[in-house]
Simulated scan of single mutants.
Amino acid sequence: MFDRKGDGWTGGDGTLSVCLKDGRTVWLFGDTFLGKVKSDGTRPKETPMIRNSLVVQTDRRLDTRYRQTEKGPAAFFPGAFPDTWYWPGDGLAAGNKMRVFLNRFRKSAPQLWAWQFTGTVLATLSLPDLELEGLDETATVKGVLFGVSVLKTKEYVYIYGTRDDAFPKLACLARATTGSLSGPWEYYTGRGWSADPKHSAPILSGVSTQYSVFQTDGLFYLVTMDGRGPFPDTIAVYRSGSPGGPWQGPRIIYKVPGVGRDVVAYNPFVHTQFTEGHRYLISYNLNHVSNPSAVYDDATIYRPQFIWVDFAVIEQRLFQ
């Protein structure tokens, strides 16, 4: 479905998703290519690239959402200043609203990959039309990208974050009562919960910038690139009996083909609305780390990849 040649989205990363009550899925992408892909699989050099987009799936039809300005296509979630932008995190839908976490960045130097994280906001979209209603700052922890994964239970919404400036990267956790996602939050301290963000403590080391947490059969699973070393090429899973751990693992569940020194895999995400029994759909992203022209020369590099993982088999073979 995402092997597209034109008329909207032709490539992007992030690849998170939110399921709506009417059966649609809203795919959330970061840097997004629009326009057309040539018959030889290349992108024209003038192909528009915007900082974020939505792709709305209705059955097998995909509809790209972004803003159209006098200067051309623009990000669905607009940055407040020319050198700032938002990359989407996870989100959820409740009632007639959809909420999406956005992590804000700014350009810190002219070099490739030179950016700085500056904070997290919570976007509100109306349903069913998906019109942007507002962006609200969140009370966050310095250096932690909150909202990379969101897990809703009966009592709480658990908001997972990443300390992205650490190596290995560290997972953190906050929670909000159901219906009060804007706050106030409580932060996991390692022993309990505190209303003071300064008491936030890591729950796990070695995660990717974005990872995914879901619950099934009374257990919590955290799916991530195996971030214990640089440029990982394997996807790992941890499990726990509670949202904050302690976590058992990692267990390696997939080795990504075709990655190496130049092409990297990153930020796996579990799309639970497409579950088939114990089989879960997992996406991951690919990009070229040293040659910006590579994603123009080969459009397939910068598109989501998908795998099915049977967690009943994972449980039986890797956690027994």
Results as ranks from 00 to 15, higher is better:
residue 260 G to Y: 06
residue 250 P to S: 10
residue 285 N to F: 11
residue 156 Y to G: 00
residue 242 S to I: 01
residue 122 L to D: 09
residue 221 Y to Q: 04
residue 31 D to K: 01
residue 77 F to Q: 01
residue 189 T to E: 01
residue 71 K to C: 00
residue 120 T to A: 07
residue 299 A to H: 11
residue 72 G to D: 08
residue 233 D to K: 14
residue 124 T to R: 03
residue 260 G to H: 07
residue 166 A to T: 08
residue 252 I to D: 08
residue 213 V to D: 05
residue 239 R to T: 12
residue 291 N to F: 10
residue 223 V to Y: 01
residue 265 A to E: 03
residue 316 Q to C: 04
residue 75 A to H: 09
residue 62 L to A: 05
residue 87 W to K: 02
residue 19 C to P: 02
residue 283 S to L: 04
residue 279 R to Q: 14
residue 243 P to D: 04
residue 212 S to W: 06
residue 52 N to P: 12
residue 130 L to M: 13
residue 89 G to W: 05
residue 90 D to K: 13
residue 32 T to L: 06
residue 219 L to V: 13
residue 99 R to I: 02
residue 120 T to D: 10
residue 41 G to L: 04
residue 290 S to G: 07
residue 140 T to L: 03
residue 141 V to A: 02
residue 160 Y to W: 08
residue 314 I to H: 01
residue 270 V to I: 10
residue 303 R to E: 01
residue 156 Y to K: 12
residue 58 T to K: 15
residue 261 R to F: 11
residue 289 V to F: 02
residue 249 G to F: 07
residue 284 Y to K: 08
residue 153 T to V: 01
residue 64 T to A: 09
residue 163 R to K: 13
residue 127 L to C: 07
residue 40 D to M: 04
residue 105 F to C: 04
residue 309 V to A: 09
residue 165 D to R: 08
residue 301 I to P: 03
residue 4 R to D: 04
residue 95 G to Q: 10
residue 186 E to H: 07
residue 220 F to R: 02
residue 185 W to P: 06
residue 134 G to V: 10
residue 70 E to M: 14
residue 315 E to M: 06
residue 239 R to F: 09
residue 320 Q to A: 13
residue 309 V to I: 15
residue 174 A to R: 14
residue 245 G to D: 11
residue 79 G to P: 08
residue 261 R to K: 15
residue 2 F to E: 02
residue 240 S to P: 15
residue 232 P to I: 06
residue 284 Y to P: 00
residue 216 T to S: 13
residue 208 S to G: 14
residue 273 Q to F: 09
residue 299 A to C: 13
residue 222 L to C: 14
residue 277 G to D: 03
residue 15 T to D: 11
residue 63 D to K: 11
residue 308 W to S: 15
residue 168 P to T: 06
residue 131 E to C: 10
residue 190 G to K: 00
residue 126 S to H: 06
residue 72 G to N: 09
residue 37 V to T: 14
residue 94 A to V: 15
residue 29 F to A: 09
